[in-house]
């Protein structure tokens, strides 16, 4: 490569790298460091008051075996599994229905997409209103359920609200996948006497799998970091809906930076493991693009 063009490359690429260093890399390293320190006043082993930072090693990670962390970890996992599973099934069903609509598909598509575009912190407010003791949800089912108090019903309310927000997202990505399946394939299946059920499992699903895998991976990433909905709908510090992100935020606002940073590092590790397993198992070929271009180059 010529010398001049190398400079030019650096000029074009470095702003992106600079922003990523400022916003992602530095906070990541700062959090990793913070997770091994304690700040503020404290007593040392001899009973003297010490100020400032002290290195404590993995002491901040001791909370990992505590009840609160285990609960938040379990909530995050349950929310992720439940919402992504329900949203995938509903999303595929919605995509199939939308694919069959001939007139007004644009309208249907636009209306189910609204929930996805709306700020989650705002839809959380709306759902809080819907799930009030004398709210719309209880009026419709004719029950008196205290949705926003501690308990399973609070979890359920969050899952319903999250599903409502993101099932359409999966639906749209699957619809895009459905639309590029040639009619010929279906005609061939029909000639061979395949039932609708067989056609779905043997043809439709395998052919939309690439689109579905990407959609589900995006969703898992978001669900593992869930914060807005439980926080706004049910409230802060509510045990039964406290996610890892909520725990991190709460610890940080209580000035317990060390544990908050430690939980953050654990969340990143958790997300990385899940993504790795997911990509390995389902073969999401996210990097096919980069790779194929490299081969051509």
């Amino acid at each position: 490569m010529r010398r001049g063009s190398r400079w030019f490359a650096a000029l074009m690429i470095s702003p992106t790298l600079l922003v990523l260093v400022l916003v992602v890399l530095y906070p990541l390293l700062a959090a990793a460091r913070e997770s091994m320190y304690v700040r503020g006043e404290g007593l040392d082993a001899d009973g003297f008051v010490v100020e400032g930072e002290r290195f404590v090693g993995v002491a901040n990670y001791a909370g990992l075996v505590g009840e609160r962390f285990v609960n938040a970890f379990a909530n995050t996992t349950v929310f992720t599994l439940a919402t992504v599973a329900v949203e995938t099934v509903l999303g595929v069903a919605m995509a199939l229905v939308m694919h069959g609509v001939l007139r007004g598909r644009g309208l249907v598509r636009a209306s189910i997409l609204i929930p996805w575009a709306v700020p989650t912190a705002i839809s959380g407010l709306m759902w809080r209103w819907v799930f009030q003791a004398d709210g719309v949800a209880n009026a419709i089912i004719g029950q008196k359920i205290l949705w926003t108090t501690e308990g399973v019903q609070a979890k359920l309310a969050v899952i319903i609200a999250d599903t409502w927000k993101t099932a359409p997202f999966i639906g749209l990505l699957v619809l895009a996948g459905l639309q590029i399946i040639p009619d010929m394939v279906y005609e061939a299946a029909k000639v061979d006497g395949a039932s609708a059920w067989q056609t779905f499992w043997r043809i439709t699903l395998p052919l939309v799998k690439p689109a579905l895998v990407v959609a589900v991976l995006f969703r898992i990433l978001q669900a593992l970091a869930m914060f807005d909905l439980p926080f706004v709908m049910i409230g802060r510090g509510k045990f039964s809906v406290e996610t890892l992100s909520a725990l991190i935020w709460d610890e940080a606002t209580q000035l317990r930076y060390g544990p908050a940073a430690a939980y953050g590092i654990v969340l990143i590790a958790y997300v990385s493991v899940i993504v790795f397993v997911f990509v390995r198992l389902l073969g999401a070929d996210l990097l096919a693009d980069a790779r194929s271009r490299k081969e051509r180059a």
């Binding site: 990523l20 992602v24 390293l29 700062a30 990433l221 908050a260």
Partner: peptide, 21 residues
């Protein structure tokens, strides 16, 4: 790939680092 990987890190996970910075 580096750019793509940053997609995996959510702001909540490094909230302390962001606040500190």
């Amino acid at each position: 790939i580096l750019v793509l990987v940053t997609q995996m890190f959510q702001p909540t996970a490094m909230l302390v680092g962001i606040y500190r910075e």
